[in-house]
């Protein structure tokens, strides 16, 4: 474990917490005659969170962490896996099933089809993998799918234009997590023998590049001290 990996995991964890905080805020303010200002903003507009992306992440973690019962790596590893599995499925549950949270979800804007991402990733994982076994193919599938799972969210952000603060932070933290993982791989490449993993690296690089555009607008909005807005 190096500092880049740890920082990457922590930003990933923070992104999940930001999302859970957002859901908690929506939940706790509903029904009050004087909602807090944050909640007022969240309830006024749609939540800006893509259910499609969240469902894809749940699928990513479910297929990647199949080894949770078979291979023990560390207590840290197991706990983090449980957190990511638990949080991704409960976020999906909240957006689909919770009476109030569901209402803040704008279904008509979030139109991306899972199928278009899942099928190519599955085919690619069947063709290009490190080992043709059930677990390894699903692991590879999860890498490919994670690389593109943010697309519905990015498209939704571009459509809604009006990005609330928490949603902006959420996407930024996810992007930071990916960028830090690349630094982690570079570090491991130079410090560990035989550490070459083209599949992980290329899909990780593709994933990070998808955030490039968002990062550009995120940082320029910080620099100019204006609200984050993506161009149409």
């Amino acid at each position: 474990m190096n500092i880049f990996r740890l920082a990457g995991d922590m930003t990933h964890l923070m992104s999940v917490l930001v999302l859970l905080l957002k859901i908690h805020t929506i939940k706790s303010c509903a029904g009050k005659s004087y909602p807090c200002s944050l909640c007022f903003i969240l309830l006024e507009s749609s939540s800006g969170i893509s259910l499609k992306t969240q469902e894809l992440y749940a699928l990513v973690f479910a297929t990647r962490y199949l080894d949770i019962f078979t291979d023990f790596i560390s207590v840290y590893n197991t706990i983090m896996k449980l957190i990511f599995l638990g949080s991704s499925f409960s976020i999906v549950w909240y957006i689909r099933r919770h009476k109030i949270v569901r209402r803040s979800y704008d279904k008509d804007q979030d139109t991306f089809r899972h199928f278009f991402l899942v099928l190519p990733c599955l085919l690619l994982a069947l063709i290009i993998n490190e080992k043709f076994t059930f677990k390894e193919v699903l692991w590879t599938f999860s890498l490919y799918l994670e690389a593109v799972a943010i697309l519905p969210q990015l498209i939704l952000l571009q459509r809604t234009r009006n990005i609330d603060n928490l949603t902006g932070q959420y996407v930024f933290l996810l992007g930071a997590y990916r960028a830090l993982y690349i630094l982690n791989w570079i570090y491991r490449y130079f410090t560990e023998p035989h550490y070459v993993h083209w599949i992980t690296w290329i899909s990780g690089l593709v994933q990070t590049l998808l955030y490039a555009d968002f990062f550009y607008y995120y940082f320029s909005s910080l620099k100019n001290n204006v609200k984050l807005k993506l161009p149409a």
């Binding site: 995991d9 982690n184 560990e192 992980t200």
Partner: peptide, 10 residues
């Protein structure tokens, strides 16, 4: 131990 070592990542 032939397991690819990215498997210790999340």
């Amino acid at each position: 131990k032939n397991q690819p070592s990215t498997h210790d990542e999340l």
